[in-house]
Design a protein around this nucleic acid. Structure first.
Lengths: 215, 215
DNA sequence: ACCTGAACACCGTTCAAGT
DNA sequence: ACCTGAACACCGTTCAAGT
């Protein structure tokens, strides 16, 4: 027992390993102790370097956070992709996605608004740190889109199919809202739980996507 | 012209006026320059006092923020109450509420998670600073609930009316999600705008509240 | 009794200096 | 060339000291 500190120290000048040390330490700190504890000094100590070094590998704290976020979104995508392929109803799929997105939101969604980076990436052509994030998100949206096309093919044929494309953003918005609602404390103002409200949201949204009957 | 600095200074020991000065300065700073610029030193200077004084009137920055937030929610309630009474459709009402909530969210919703205070207020019986906030939110929920009962009376008669109570939380969650989506930058990942998505959400939700037909 | 403001602990970030 | 760590600017918060 007591197998801590077994890692051989990264040797001087090994930039690749050094970078990995920093990212690993950052991930460990953020996921274990939350954004509140995510500070550059502890992070550097965890990686076995000093603060100055972290800044030679990452422009700032936000950029490092974005790396972790993108990485996590890729893992999230890996989790839901098989579910999207296997799903037999939009309603159940939404619930499964929601349950897997919640922990992602809890760690990454709350405190820092990384998506502000995306604005810069769109404006200036630089900001390469936002790229993986945008790509991961785009991939997730695409996978979900494909699944919904399969599960609710009826609405694809509608003449005015602009509404169809609104379904994904609405799903996204609702998911985000649900996570925020239950990660914060607002849900204490009513007696309903995560499972209950998520199921209700799923049913409502599934009907909107499949149906769009009259009116 | 140049009518600045006309206010007569609050006299020594006038606690009521002093408190008002602080709240006024805080509101001015937060609403004019955003949460990022909302710091205790500028705030104190704006109120014509030093930081120490602010801390004799408010326990901390969060408590002061909660006061402003509650105040703003009361104003929001005053704005939507007549709309709730006059509304002829749940769909249009949702849109009107959303358009009025968006600026509230922009100032108060993003950065600080004040609702964590509510947890404390529920746990310890103290935390009086959370009270006005909870009250304002409760009042808003109640007003909206009444309006929906009037606009969609059909579902009230349903045997299993537990779903009925889920409608309000879902509305709330969706509203929050919409505001977050468009206040941040995530919406740049798809081509749809606030009006378009809000209208689609309103239609979807209104149908869920009124209908709940088959299944 | 009310208010001041220097001081404290803690941030993210920089940069001259070390090896 | 890579890395260090003291230093800087700026936070929220406290508290002995002033009036």
């Amino acid at each position: 027992m007591a197998r801590t500190r077994t890692k051989t120290p990264t040797r001087w000048g090994d930039k690749e390993a050094r970078r990995k040390d920093i990212v690993d330490a950052a991930r460990h700190l953020l996921e274990r102790r939350g954004y509140q504890a995510f500070n550059m000094r502890d992070l550097a100590r965890g990686a076995g370097v000093t603060v100055g070094t972290v800044y030679t590998y990452f422009r700032n704290k936000e950029e490092l956070f974005a790396v972790l976020y993108a990485e996590r979104l890729e893992r999230f995508h890996a989790e839901i992709a098989p579910l999207c392929r296997a799903a037999v109803s939009a309603e159940d799929l939404f619930i499964e996605i929601a349950n897997r997105y919640r922990p992602v939101y809890q760690v990454f969604g709350r405190e820092l608004n990384v998506w502000a980076l995306v604005i810069d990436a769109a404006a200036k052509e630089s900001a390469p740190s936002a790229r993986p994030l945008v790509e991961a998100a785009t991939q997730i949206l695409s996978t979900v889109h494909t699944a919904l096309d399969r599960l609710a093919p009826r609405s694809v044929r509608r003449t005015d199919d602009s509404d169809r494309h609104l379904a994904i953003p609405l799903l996204w918005v609702t998911l985000q809202g649900l996570c925020d609602h239950f990660t914060g404390a607002r849900h204490l103002l009513h007696p309903h739980g995560w499972d209950e409200l998520t199921r209700y949201a799923a049913r409502t949204l599934a009907r909107a996507i499949a149906g769009e009957e009259d009116r």
